[in-house]
Amino acid sequence: MADTAFPPITDTDWPEAAAELRDGFAGRLNVYRTMAHHPALLRAWAPLRGHVVIDNVLGKQFSEVVILRTGVNLGSDYEWNHHVSRGRACGMSDARIASIKGALAGMAPEDAILASAVDELFTAKRLSPATQEGLVNLVGREGMFDVLATVGFYSTLGYILNSCGTPLDDDVAAELAARPLNAT
């Protein structure tokens, strides 16, 4: 059987076809170092990443709620743990972050609207008219589309992470070892 392991690519083995991305976002995270096994995909990924991660209209905290709940639905430990760190960095409390893993009833109302939309995308493969209305009321029309795009974007990353067994980045692992998620 052929070796199917796709570990994060080191600087030494970084593909020339994506050389300009190594010192930017792609070289900073194991998920993109794994994606570098397909340089053309990584290059195509960069512009969409710019919108979904940086330029979306959701704001940092709502974006993190959507990403965390996507990680929960995918069973992606990498996404969950990485975004625990990112959620903390943008001012979310541990209790709020932990609530995103649980039942909708245990979340703040705005978080529950977002998490419910994520869940609906995974279960029904679409947003119902009622869910669309709730999202538009919360984040606007463009925000609803950013929720859809964020779930799709991070689902693709989650499939890569889960399929390739990508290890958590050392800095995030060290942070969570020193300061585990505290739900209270």
Rank of each mutant, 00 (worst) to 15 (best):
residue 72 V to H: 10
residue 84 V to G: 00
residue 59 G to K: 06
residue 176 L to K: 12
residue 168 L to W: 00
residue 57 V to T: 15
residue 102 G to Q: 13
residue 77 D to V: 08
residue 164 C to N: 15
residue 36 A to D: 13
residue 74 L to M: 13
residue 6 F to R: 13
residue 88 R to A: 00
residue 98 A to N: 06
residue 84 V to I: 15
residue 108 A to V: 10
residue 5 A to T: 12
residue 83 H to R: 05
residue 17 A to Y: 03
residue 103 A to C: 05
residue 99 S to M: 03
residue 102 G to N: 10
residue 86 R to L: 13
residue 95 A to W: 00
residue 86 R to Q: 07
residue 67 I to K: 06
residue 82 H to E: 09
residue 128 S to R: 08
residue 50 G to P: 01
residue 38 H to Y: 12
residue 132 Q to N: 09
residue 16 E to H: 06
residue 163 S to W: 01
residue 126 R to K: 11
residue 123 T to R: 03
residue 53 V to M: 08
residue 133 E to Y: 09
residue 65 V to F: 11
residue 31 V to A: 08
residue 143 G to L: 09
residue 34 T to S: 07
residue 85 S to K: 04
residue 35 M to K: 00
residue 108 A to P: 00
residue 89 A to C: 01
residue 117 A to T: 13
residue 77 D to N: 14
residue 177 A to C: 00
residue 127 L to Y: 03
residue 74 L to R: 04
residue 150 T to K: 04
residue 166 T to Y: 00
residue 173 A to I: 05
residue 26 A to I: 11
residue 119 D to W: 03
residue 147 V to A: 03
residue 110 E to V: 05
residue 124 A to N: 12
residue 20 E to K: 15
residue 126 R to C: 09
residue 17 A to E: 10
residue 96 R to V: 02
residue 37 H to I: 01
residue 22 R to K: 07
residue 55 D to Q: 12
residue 17 A to F: 01
residue 176 L to S: 04
residue 138 L to R: 10
residue 114 L to P: 05
residue 127 L to K: 00
residue 30 N to R: 04
residue 74 L to S: 02
residue 117 A to Y: 07
residue 19 A to P: 02
residue 163 S to P: 00
residue 122 F to W: 09
residue 163 S to A: 14
residue 84 V to A: 03
residue 166 T to C: 03
residue 152 G to F: 10
residue 15 P to G: 03
residue 4 T to M: 14
residue 153 F to K: 02
residue 11 D to Y: 09
residue 126 R to V: 12
residue 98 A to S: 06
residue 166 T to L: 05
residue 13 D to E: 13
residue 177 A to D: 04
residue 135 L to F: 04
residue 62 F to H: 15
residue 97 I to F: 02
residue 24 G to K: 15
residue 179 R to V: 07
residue 71 G to H: 10
residue 102 G to E: 12
residue 8 P to W: 02
residue 130 A to C: 06
residue 106 G to P: 01
residue 63 S to A: 11
residue 113 I to A: 11
residue 85 S to E: 08
residue 180 P to E: 00
residue 66 V to L: 11
residue 132 Q to V: 12
residue 174 A to K: 02
residue 19 A to L: 06
residue 22 R to L: 12
residue 59 G to F: 09
residue 83 H to M: 03
residue 94 D to W: 02
residue 139 V to M: 05
residue 76 S to A: 05
residue 146 D to S: 00
residue 11 D to V: 06
residue 37 H to E: 13
residue 19 A to N: 08
residue 105 A to P: 02
residue 146 D to E: 13
residue 152 G to K: 09
residue 84 V to Y: 06
residue 140 G to A: 08
residue 140 G to V: 05
residue 95 A to L: 04
residue 16 E to S: 05
residue 70 T to V: 00
residue 125 K to E: 06
residue 10 T to W: 07
residue 58 L to W: 10
residue 10 T to K: 03
residue 180 P to A: 04
residue 118 V to K: 00
residue 168 L to N: 12
residue 102 G to D: 11
residue 28 R to I: 00
residue 32 Y to M: 14
residue 169 D to K: 10
residue 136 V to C: 09
residue 106 G to K: 07
residue 63 S to V: 00
residue 53 V to L: 13
residue 103 A to Q: 15
residue 17 A to I: 01
residue 175 E to C: 02
residue 167 P to C: 12
residue 8 P to R: 06
residue 123 T to A: 11
residue 3 D to H: 10
residue 60 K to Q: 15
residue 182 N to V: 11
residue 85 S to L: 04
residue 107 M to N: 10
residue 137 N to S: 15
residue 56 N to M: 02
residue 18 A to H: 08
residue 113 I to Q: 09
